[in-house]
Amino acid sequence: MIKTNALTKQFDEHIAVDSLDLDIADGELFGFLGPNGAGKTTTVRMLTSLIAPTSGTAVVGGFKLGEDDQNIRRNVGILTETPGMYDRLSAHRNLSIYAELYEVEQVERQVEKYLKMLGLWERRDDPVGTFSKGMRQKLAIARSMLHEPKTLFLDEPTSGLDPEAAKLVRDFIEDLKEAGRTIFLCTHNLDEADRLCDRIAVFNGKLRVVDTPTSLRHSLFGNQVVVQLAASAEFYTSNLTSLPFVKECVADGNRLLLQMDDPAANNPELIRVLVSANAPIQFVSEQTHSLEDIYLELVNDK
């Protein structure tokens, strides 16, 4: 469980995080979406008690920020923006150091478990300096899991990875969610947030909106129906604008773009009208907006 109340961080003149209110449930995979410089890393650093908020309060995993910091550090896992590994030491050594620092009881067992889970067991004795970017990132994820934290902060886990490594990391995040962990996922990758997250917060210094990916789409753009014709669509708009359920109708070449409240209920009537006007219908489809449109809309609307 993560709950923040007017959480604010100011650097000199610049307010990086402005009065953030969040309420994240146990077991939720929460997407924290924002462009570079939005203050995502700053938020994560505050919530993992690495830096102190200028004002506001937060409770992380049942512990109050500023009062129980040591317990917060003990009970959360963090994947930092940069993996930060000891390049001269082996993967195994890197993890055992952290297992000790996290007060893990069975160091060897945990290290082995996560090295194997992330496919790094074969390379355990190689210096991390010889690892690819994807391997380092996987190792850093393993490191954040050693003490089996209930709450996990992942700061842009797939940024800079090739598609294959990114997919592996995303699958791993899904497994973590299945296991019931609460995950705070910072990303500027919309597709990733859309596919993985239960809820998404769009954030750029201020919180813009929090909702599920699906209702985010609907609330912003309503439902749009596209009718593809074999002829110019212009001729048919007048037939449709008079229909009560059509809120808006525009022609775009051979396509009709319609804004409707409930396409599932109204499409049969719509099609009947078009057919009786001899419209040469090729396809009827629902236009779904990508999250990207929504995101750009929100982020650019200052």
Binding site: R73, T82, G84, L101
Partner: peptide
């Protein structure tokens, strides 16, 4: 330079 301080400071070491 290798940015290892942040993960280190995130552990319960004082």
């Amino acid at each position: 330079t290798s940015r290892t301080l942040e993960p280190l400071l995130a552990t319960p070491i004082t």
